[in-house]
Amino acid sequence: MTRPRFRPGQPVRVKALFPPGHCRTPFYTRGKRGRILDLVDVEPDPEERAYGRPGLPPLPVWRVVFAQHELWPDYRGPARDQVVVGIFEPWLEPLEDGG
């Protein structure tokens, strides 16, 4: 695999794309900001495999931490509550720190 695109702690945004078809990036994360937790796995592309294609080369899967208050404007729990989601690399774009 080439040099990893992200590093733990890095701010990222999930792309605000909304295609039909099979994808494993949950709707509630699209367009949202989070931080990279780690590179959790490398897996064939499910968007290809779902249609009978091999999905190779495999893609990095990054665990992204989303603050609940980022995801839901009306979230009433503590600020430290989070959702951690494995996101396939093409769905992520880097943010400037503080962005």
Partner: peptide, 11 residues
């Protein structure tokens, strides 16, 4: 803190 893990990938 409550941390929810959404299993989206194979693992």
């Amino acid at each position: 803190a409550v941390i929810v893990h959404d299993s989206t990938a194979e693992l």
